[in-house]
Amino acid sequence: MASRIFLRRRDGRIEVRLNEAGREVAREAFGHVLAAEGDPDHEWHASLNAPINPGSDVDDPLATFKRQHEMTSNVELAVATLNEEFLNDAEAWAWLCTLQVALRAFITAKGLLSADRLEESDEATQHYIKTLQTLLFAIADVM
């Protein structure tokens, strides 16, 4: 049986079996999301501020504020628990959301929004995407 990256324990906690290299990937992804939130020049910033209602010139400011607040809460919780051996459900949800935000922001910044474009991308790009997907598969499996 293949070893699992995240394991749901009988007491409800989620054990994180990531090695240091794996945690470094997560740390880098979380760091980029955190930086992109506050920096309009960051290449991931646009993805984090996608339109809510594309039919309107301007989105509801309350909705965009709520999005920013919730995204910040998630990424801060994910960063704060990066070195933990066990996560509770709220912390695991913050990891899943932040990893998924990172994955989408990465492909959006690279313009890889179709399967064809993705196939044409370089090896390093595909490797990074597969690594984030592996983490996402694994954490979704215990939620």
Partner: peptide
């Protein structure tokens, strides 16, 4: 709008 925000916060492309 509330649900769309939650989906976007979770990283999905939603409108």
């Amino acid at each position: 709008q509330g649900y769309c925000v939650k989906l976007q916060v979770a990283g999905l492309l939603a409108t």
